[in-house]
Design a protein around this nucleic acid. Structure first.
Lengths: 358, 358
DNA sequence: CTGTTAGCGCTTTCAC
DNA sequence: GTGAAAGCGCTAACAG
């Protein structure tokens, strides 16, 4: 029963005294076990175990200039959008972080400038070693900002800096490591599923032309329709909000002279798809039976609304694991760009529910 | 080995040299401004500003034994439940934390024992100063565990250790500081709203008898019915899952000999209410027009499902602010139990949507 | 292979 | 009111 410590915690020196050696040796036992003889190592680790020693994080951080803390931003929730999956994403990140001995620290910021301020504060106070970004986009100021300062990070979302095929190894423009979901592949799967249900006039409801993610998903629709020999006629691009989806659906489903009315609407997000479901209800149409609808993200809402919304589930656990692997390898001194596997594209999985089946 | 760039950060000594004084005078300027003469103080602060000095968190933590980091657990998402509002809650907490100079660090744990292990690790490594718990319940092992070790914390959710009225100042059994939502008041508001729509046979769908939160909400239903002179006849208590709500609704809405069928179902959660909406659809009944339904939590799903789900919104920003105030006051050395305001009950707000209006 | 020494950056004594 | 010294707990560097 040792107790001369100020606040009850066991220090390295306590273990050393217990084992009958020096602090440094215990430190080595923990950090460079190969430097000790088998016997001393065993006794040292036993002492660590017996006294329940845990290294003091601040001392270690001060010494190593490494906190093993990673910053992530929590975005303000938007009521007009389906859940951002932030809680699922954070849980997955935290789990992966724990596996590699990291912890996550939250950066809160109202706007985009505030976000950089928050990052700067976390970095200047040497609180974090690296950041995980989400929702990265073309010309993302965050990526540039972090790169300028030599701060390690990995992004959920492609920077879209180049229009190169991600398989092309020579995309020197986007040296930031990232992980992303293959939106085109996901939407292709949705279109194929809907076509298999017998639909031949499949509309797409997505985001405006400027959005790279939106373009990618729309491309999946066009490609799948082409493959299947179906027309890719009707589409709309609107902001990602429930009301916008609802309004756009009214337009898409309104008969036009000369053109047939779509019997299926494939959407770029659950938020838009939920707006479409509202419109169907207003028009007295039954989702699934009359018009098939699919979303993207498989938000909690998709499972709980009536009818259930068919949607594309993002492999968040795999995404999180990969993001942490990327960050970890940078912090361990590897050069991420050269390892060739610093960019990962993962396919989402179609989850079929009532909104797309008769 | 020092970093090639030495991460270019400004230290106290740099500011001291710039100003022409010693490090700890600058330290005093920052932490004990009253100890300096006006002139030196001004010059010191100017130096801090000019060089963009930010104190090194690990050094400060090592010295002060205070990290200004607060631990929060991220629970694993449950697909059969509406979003836990975790992202909204975390955002609100992070915002309040930032306002008081704290940051949040995530503790990830699969189960309840793992949660305590995670807390222990964060505490023993002196990573965090305190914890914010959510979903606190009667005989919560976390509260007992933290109290035993003298670790500061505040809970979202009453410990329900005593059945005393929260206004009663003598509830010595529950000395842990907490913030909670007044479930009974919320459900009373929902019942009154539904009654104002002309419903006279109002059922309640909640959780099993063992749940304190469930009992509180059910009490609100019974009280409101009593006040309004309406019968409080039909109710059910099931686990908080979509399918359970769906099944229970079939039972509640099934005509019984001698008893009228409820025309309104007030629920203890959005998850259950969404199950009820599914049942109504299966029975060919229209939510709102035929049967009024209300939920609790105002999850994102409530706004996006069709029809919209009337629900009770929890004042998460106020809850978060109060939780941080409680933690902060403990860390500043106040005795939370004695200040008398360590327990706060906040009323949720009814958000009316189509599921409860004709 | 092991132990001693020094110092990461900050702040609380304690002289002056 | 100001500054010098000491040390929080840890680990890289080097000596033994």
């Amino acid at each position: 029963m040792r107790g001369p410590t100020a606040h009850g915690s066991v220090r390295l020196a306590d273990v050393a005294r217990h084992v009958g050696t020096s602090s440094q040796t215990i430190s080595n036992a923990l950090n460079h076990p190969e430097r000790l003889t088998a016997d001393l190592l065993e006794r040292s680790l036993a002492g660590v175990e017996e006294l329940g020693y845990r290294p003091n994080r601040s001392a270690r951080t001060l010494r190593n200039q490494r906190s093993r803390l990673i910053g992530v931003r929590v975005e303000p929730p938007r009521p007009d959008r389906a859940a951002l999956l932030l809680d699922q994403f954070l849980h997955a990140l935290a789990a992966s972080a724990a596996g590699l001995g990291y912890h996550l620290i939250l950066a809160q910021a109202a706007g985009d400038t505030a976000e950089l301020d928050a990052y700067e504060e976390l970095r200047q106070t040497t609180t974090v070693d690296a950041f995980v970004l989400s929702g990265a986009h073309r010309d993302d100021p965050r990526a540039a900002w972090l790169r300028e300062r030599g701060i390690s990070f990995a992004s959920f979302g492609r920077p879209w800096d180049t229009d190169l095929d991600p398989d092309d190894g020579s995309d020197a423009g986007s040296e930031s490591p990232w992980v992303d979901v293959d939106g085109a592949a996901g939407v292709r799967a949705a279109v194929r599923h809907v076509a298999a249900q017998g639909h031949e006039e499949i509309a797409f409801l997505g985001w405006p032309e400027e959005s790279d993610v939106g373009r990618d998903r729309r491309r999946g629709w066009a490609e799948a329709c082409h493959e299947l020999g179906l027309p890719a006629r009707r589409q709309a691009g609107v902001v990602d909000e429930f009301e916008a989806g609802r309004d756009a659906a009214h337009r898409l489903l309104h008969p036009r002279r000369g053109g047939p009315v779509p019997t299926a609407v494939v959407c770029a997000s659950d938020t838009l798809a939920l707006g479409v479901l509202r419109t169907l209800s207003e028009l007295g149409l039954r989702a699934g039976a009359d018009v098939a609808v699919t979303g993207f993200d498989n938000t909690p809402t998709a499972a709980l609304t009536t009818p259930g919304l068919t949607s594309l589930e993002q492999p968040l656990a795999a995404i999180a694991a990969e993001l942490l692997r990327l960050v970890d390898s940078q912090l361990r001194g590897d050069v991420p760009g050269s390892s060739g596997d610093a960019h990962t594209l993962l396919a989402p999985t179609l989850v079929v529910r009532g909104s797309s089946t008769r």
